[in-house]
Design a protein around this nucleic acid. Structure first.
Length: 346
RNA sequence: GGCGCCGUACCCAAGUGGUUAAGGGAGCAGUCUGCAAAACUGCGAUUCGGCGGUUCGAACCCGCCCGGCGCCUCCA
């Protein structure tokens, strides 16, 4: 009982499962798990059975990573007994150090309770994608952002509300990325861009080097978003815009973010109108929620926008507003650009 | 009974001994706009679950307490 701060006599044998009478000591752990009728098994000197779960992990790690490897992760509920036992049997077998670093994450919680297979209160990523009204790649990025917004050691409460907040924040980035792809003639703030990017990269790396402090790393990306927005309003050349978009893509790639050219909601329309929340905890109210039968195609949207621009040119603002309202009712938001044209999003 | 994690603004969340307690979301006000949207600017915790203590100084260290979560050797 050396790896964690627990005394043998303080442990309650049989707290969770009955003590097997075949054990020499009640605190012994199972290297070989005897099989119940119908379970897969192999013959062994100890009877039919299979390797215990600790052995599975040691064997897999050694097969693929070697006798000693750098980082072993896992939920903090596995510190004892699982990781303790992995260390005991692995070091016992090889006489060498097993894992150099252990990274234990806090729980994903649902309703303030650990999300776990045995409690049955879990969803797979696939289920999340299936229930989300957003296309899979967007839902994936939302989920990723949500997970990264908390330091890995702490607990994390899964809720539709939290996922939607992540979407809102990401919107700010993708709104900027969209603007960075537009052509321009001004370049007045170009010379300030390298400094902004350099500062962000340094701060981002510093945060990540500090035990993967992803919330701080994200905050730095947000600072860069804000800074670039300011430079953009002063004037950035097309080239400078490309460079800055590339920097967002490069830093974001470390976290699996910002890899899409833009939020693309039209190519893969999803049935909206789903009011069943994923968690059952909160009702789901989302921006751009539309039922499939009134969902517009990209062509229809662009047609409407052309008509609205035409109305605007003729100073027929009531018609223009009518069209904007119509699109809004279909979950489409219009943004007018300074040059008189419009961009849109869901 | 033992061991561990968490409790910071309306919500999410950094900070863990010393400048004005990061950042995001929501909200409010202003600039811009035909009006919007986006963006930008400003506002928002004299205070960090509670009470004591240590210290020149504590959200951060120590003690006790309250609340939530987890682990204690065949769930994987």
């Amino acid at each position: 009982m050396c790896c964690i701060k627990r005394k043998l006599e303080d442990l309650q044998a049989g707290a969770r499962v009955d003590v097997d009478e075949r054990k020499r000591h009640p605190m012994d752990f199972a290297l070989w798990k005897s099989s119940k009728p119908g379970e897969p098994s192999w013959e062994s000197p100890w009877g039919p059975g299979r390797p215990g779960w600790h052995i599975e992990c040691s064997a897999m790690a050694m097969r693929h990573l070697g006798e000693t490897f750098d980082i072993h992760g896992g939920g903090m509920d596995l510190i004892f007994p699982h990781h303790e036992n992995e260390i005991a049997q692995s070091c016992g077998a090889t006489g060498k150090e097993f894992a150099r670093y252990w990274i234990h994450n806090g729980f994903v919680q649902i309703n303030q309770e650990k999300m776990s297979k045995s409690l049955g209160n879990f969803f797979t990523i696939r289920e999340i994608f299936e229930k989300s009204e957003w296309p899979e790649d967007i839902a994936g990025e939302m989920l990723r952002y949500f997970l990264l917004a908390t330091q890995y050691r702490g607990p994390l409460d899964f809720s539709d509300h939290a996922i939607n907040e992540a979407k809102q924040t990401l919107n700010g980035f993708y709104d900027l990325f969209k603007r960075l792809e537009e052509k321009t003639e001004s370049a007045t703030a170009d010379r300030d861009l390298p400094g902004v990017m350099k500062r962000c990269r340094a701060a981002f790396c510093e945060a990540m080097d500090d035990d993967f402090n992803t919330p701080v790393a994200l905050a730095e990306l947000q600072r860069m978003k804000s800074d670039v927005n300011k430079l953009l309003s002063l004037g950035l050349s097309t080239e400078a815009r490309k460079i800055s978009r590339k920097e967002f893509r490069s830093l974001g790639n470390i976290l699996g973010l910002f890899q899409f050219d833009k939020w693309e909601f039209v190519d893969k329309p999803r049935p909206g109108d789903v009011v069943v929340g994923l968690t059952g905890v909160e009702s789901r109210i989302m921006v751009g929620q539309v039922s499939p039968e009134i969902e517009l195609s990209k062509e229809q949207i662009e047609q409407q926008i052309a008509e609205r621009l035409d109305a605007k040119k003729k100073k027929n603002f009531s018609k223009a507003d009518e069209i904007r309202q119509f699109l809004a009712s279909r979950g489409i938001v219009i943004e007018d650009k300074p040059d008189g044209t419009s961009r849109w999003k869901r």
